[in-house]
Each structure stands twice: as C-alpha cells, then as structure tokens.
C-alpha cells in the first residue's frame, strides 16, 4: 500500500474517528460548563439543608426554635442561646456606616481619575485602585489590629469612653470603609468612563463650566453604575470575614449603639471560637451562613434592580 495515498476505506475510518472524538469533546465542554453553573445551586442547597436541620424535630443535639433564632438578641455558646437578630442589625449598621464613609470619597476619586487627573496620573491611580482591591483580607486584618485599633483606642480615651483595646464597632467600620473603597471606586470609574462625550459637549455648549459639567451631567448620567458599585461594596462588607473578626470582639448581646463597644457580625459569628467540627455550636454556624447567604442574594437582586430602574443615560 502506498503511504501517501491511503485508500478510501482508511480515509473514511479516519473521518469517523474524528467525528467521534469531536462528539466526545463537545460533551466534555458541555459537562464542564454545566458543572460550573451547578455549583451555585449546590452551595445554596447544601447550606440550606445543613442550616435548617437545626430547627427540625429530631435534630440530635436538641431542636432550636426558628423564630427565637431570628429575633434573639443574645448569642452565647456556654448557655446554648443562639439569637441572630442583633447580629443581623450589627452587620447592616457597620456595613452602612462604612459605606457612608467610603462612598463619597470613592465617587469623587473616580471622578478625579477619569475626568480631572492628567493622563499619566490617571494610569497610575487606576493601577493603585486595582492593587488595593487585590490586597488579601488577612493583611488588612493585621493592619487593622495593629493600626486602626490603636487609633480607636486614642479616640475612645479622648471622648472619655472605654474600649477593649480598640476592639470595637468603630474599628470594624473604619476597616470596612478601607476594604470596600476599591470596589466602589472601580465600579464608579467604569460608569463614568461610559458616559457619552456628546452629553458633556452639550453641557459645555450651553455655557456650563467643566466642573459644573462633571458634577451635574457626568455624575448624574453615571449614577446607576455608581449606585450599583455602592451596593456591590455593601455586599463585600456583609461577607468580609477574616479581617473583621480580628477587630470585632464578638459581643454576646446587642445591638449596642455605642461605637466603642465590641460588636458581632454574621461572619465573625461563623468564624470565631470554632473548636469542634460537630455538635450544635458547629451546626448553628450554617444557620448563620444561611442568613448571610440570603442577605447576599438580596443584595445581588438589588444591583440588578438598580441597573434597570435608576437608569441614567450611561449604557448606549
């Protein structure tokens, strides 16, 4: 048989083999994709099943009352009292205060970077913002427990308050404000960049100054993206665990409106004081996780809603 001219049979055989391998690969592509997409569903199911089990009759370590869990204002491992009500309130208030501090600064910084800064500074600052977002949570945590708590301690002394070595709600707020800054800022940068030039020119042609245009036209045209960034930042703040746990102090009851008091958020509850990997004290962390999951999914839904409802003119 001549090597260079394979007969028709072999050609057909080859083609068939290629067809089969093509089919196998296509199946593999599909399986990988479906597997990846299934992950979020599986995560929700598994956490829900494990988190709800605690409230069902027949739970081996003693059934818990679901209503007491949701509205309880005390969380004590020693007396097996698990109430997540004040923890949810703490989680929301610390995140909200952090966003209150971070949002204006982040938005103005984004405006500066896109519209005001000279070209060279712009590239440098964008890089800086991206790097800030990449710093691991645990590094921020070490920074917070070394620097922020010291600052808070001095503040507390100045106001004549006591604080547990700076471990307090205020430390959590300051830390979160720093940590969500890059999220809000980079979303704002993207939103401001997307504003069409024609809007700006129109405003300038009507006699507005460049600054008036920036603040009144550009910012309001980009507002849906900017607010979506704010909500995304809030989501980050709700879910931030390691760093927050280092400075939160795990108050056993609450909510307390004194910023120098210790606090407890959903994530610190899940992370701290973990000794065993079975029993009620371990399983109830999944229930707290379920509450956190619900909060996060609500936040995600809110982002979609904002993008659709607030509108703005940014997306052509």
């Amino acid at each position: 048989m001549n090597d260079r001219q394979p007969n028709a049979l072999m050609l057909q055989h080859n083609r068939q083999r290629r067809k089969i391998s093509d089919k196998i690969w296509r199946a593999l592509f599909l399986i990988s994709c479906v597997l990846s997409a299934l992950m979020i569903v599986l995560i929700i199911i598994f956490i829900a099943v494990k988190g709800i089990r605690v409230f069902l009759p027949g739970y081996e370590y003693g059934q818990q009352n679901f209503w007491d869990f949701l509205t309880g204002m005390t969380w004590r491992q020693d007396s097996k009292t698990y109430g997540v009500g004040f923890i949810v309130i703490n989680t929301f208030t610390t995140a909200a205060f952090a966003a209150l501090l971070s949002f204006p600064v982040a938005t103005l910084t984004a405006l500066f970077i896109v519209k005001i800064a000279p070209e060279r500074l712009r590239v440098a600052f964008t890089t800086v913002i991206e790097l800030l977002a990449a710093i691991p949570s645990v590094v921020y945590g070490v920074f917070a427990s070394g620097a922020i708590t010291k600052l808070v301690q001095q503040l507390a002394a100045f106001f004549g308050q006591t604080s547990a070595a700076g471990i307090s709600a205020l430390s959590v707020i300051l830390l979160l404000a720093i940590m969500i800054f890059p999220t809000i800022c980079s979303m704002a940068i993207v939103a401001i960049q997307a504003v069409g030039k024609s809007l700006e020119w129109g405003s300038l042609a009507l006699g507005a100054s460049q600054t008036q245009t920036n603040f009144k036209v550009v910012l309001s045209a980009a507002k849906s993206g900017i607010f979506a960034g704010l909500v995304l930042g809030l989501g980050r703040a709700f879910g931030e665990a390691t760093a927050v746990t280092m400075v939160a102090g795990n108050a056993m009851s609450g909510p307390s409106w004194n910023l120098f008091d210790t606090t407890r958020t959903l994530t610190t509850t899940m992370l701290s004081g973990m000794h065993e990997t079975s029993g009620l004290d371990y399983d109830i962390r999944f229930s707290a996780g379920l509450v956190l999951m619900a909060v996060i999914l609500l936040t995600n839904a809110l982002i979609h809603l904002i993008k659709r409802k607030i509108g703005g003119v940014d997306h052509e």
């Binding site: 979020i40 995560i43 899940m270 996780g289 956190l292 996060i296 936040t299």
Partner: peptide, 24 residues
C-alpha cells in the same frame, strides 16, 4: 442562564464557600 449562574458565584463571600466546602 448558565452564564448568569457562573457570574453569581462571584458575589458569594468566601466564608460561604468554606462552609459549603465542608459539607459538599
């Protein structure tokens, strides 16, 4: 829908991944 499901993973905090990793 597949794309949306994968995107949603992005917003999930890492502590949730830790919890679900243990059981799942």
């Amino acid at each position: 829908l597949l794309r949306q499901a994968i995107e949603t993973l992005n917003g999930v905090p890492s502590i949730i991944f830790g919890l679900s990793g243990v059981v799942m």
